[in-house]
Design a protein around this nucleic acid. Sequence first.
DNA 1: CCATATAGTTTCGACTAGCAACTATTTATG
DNA 2: CATAAATAGTTGCTAGTCGAAACTATATGG
Lengths: 190, 190
Amino acid sequence: MISGKAIEAARLLDRLQRLARAGELAGDLNPAQWDALRYLARANRFSRTPAALADYLASTRGTVSRTLASLEAKGYVRRAGNLRDGRSVEFTLTKKAADTLKQDPLLLVAKDIEKAAGRGLPDILESLREMLRTAIARNEGRAFGICVSCRYFRANQRMGPSPHHCALLDQPLSDADSEAICVEQEPRAA
Amino acid sequence: MISGKAIEAARLLDRLQRLARAGELAGDLNPAQWDALRYLARANRFSRTPAALADYLASTRGTVSRTLASLEAKGYVRRAGNLRDGRSVEFTLTKKAADTLKQDPLLLVAKDIEKAAGRGLPDILESLREMLRTAIARNEGRAFGICVSCRYFRANQRMGPSPHHCALLDQPLSDADSEAICVEQEPRAA
DNA sequence: CCATATAGTTTCGACTAGCAACTATTTATG
DNA sequence: CATAAATAGTTGCTAGTCGAAACTATATGG
């Protein structure tokens, strides 16, 4: 029913993950904090909230709230209220966080992958994408894909620095926005 | 220097890991406890110690000691002293643990992998093996490969239920032993 | 025989984690 | 429009990970 190869692959993934995790435990940040910083570095302004982060991490609002509080106390993130919705808060990275992310231990993993996969990397990548899609579907999670690939993305709707448009939130989007990940993203094709 | 594809692959791996981890948080066990049970299920008798487990998990003796204590309190593992070395203890799984492992959430990951990788699975597997080798080398960790693939493994040295032999520890090995993972394993080829 | 190494445990402080109770909005509905 | 229900976020609780370091006990090597 489940092949031995698939089980071995799952075990390898699990072990790889443990090693990567161990690398994230050194220093001032722990794995959850690293994941939060990485997320905030890539998420658009509609998605830099505790709730979206909790969704992304398959965690809870309570846990994420504490993680963000400790990142704030350590000076990695800044908190700002949302003018439209008084309940919501938005987090942004500080310069300290941006500098820290340049030494992201995930880059070491990427280096290992590059070294190990060689010319097979494109195939591996496609398989990993498919695995993630499958896993997300099973967990009933959100995709968090990039804005430009979303069914609600409308390119070049006007002139100026934010030429694109989100048809779901009815908000203008810059080029940078369009490359960020979004909590609301839904793939274009049905 | 590091390709975008390698970084994307690392991110996918990280996210995949978060989802898998979330699946391990439900129920009576947490991710570290699942990892400990899986290890004990596969490790030979020379390797079912806190120190070996700590090595395997890239953790510390202190943490593993606590993890094993809580598994013992919950009835998943049993503790036994080592007759040769009074300092050492050996852990074995209870029936409860064996039954629990039949519902291992890692099997769901394996199912996802099978579904997503399709006929590409053998290639993926080979890449994952290579990635793990690379990551282990970088972390100066032990391989924990299976006994039969070890340079110290000697097949069919005698008659009876334990025909094989470990040339490092000078101990007889059964067929089952030879398929278990070992803290001392070193690949055959130099 | 004693110094040193090794196996394991324990304590401490920071933190993740789920759960549930809680506050403060916002939105929906009668 | 007033109130109920939903939503965003925080906080108290308990269990447990995690590193670091102190600690106990046993082995081993000069």
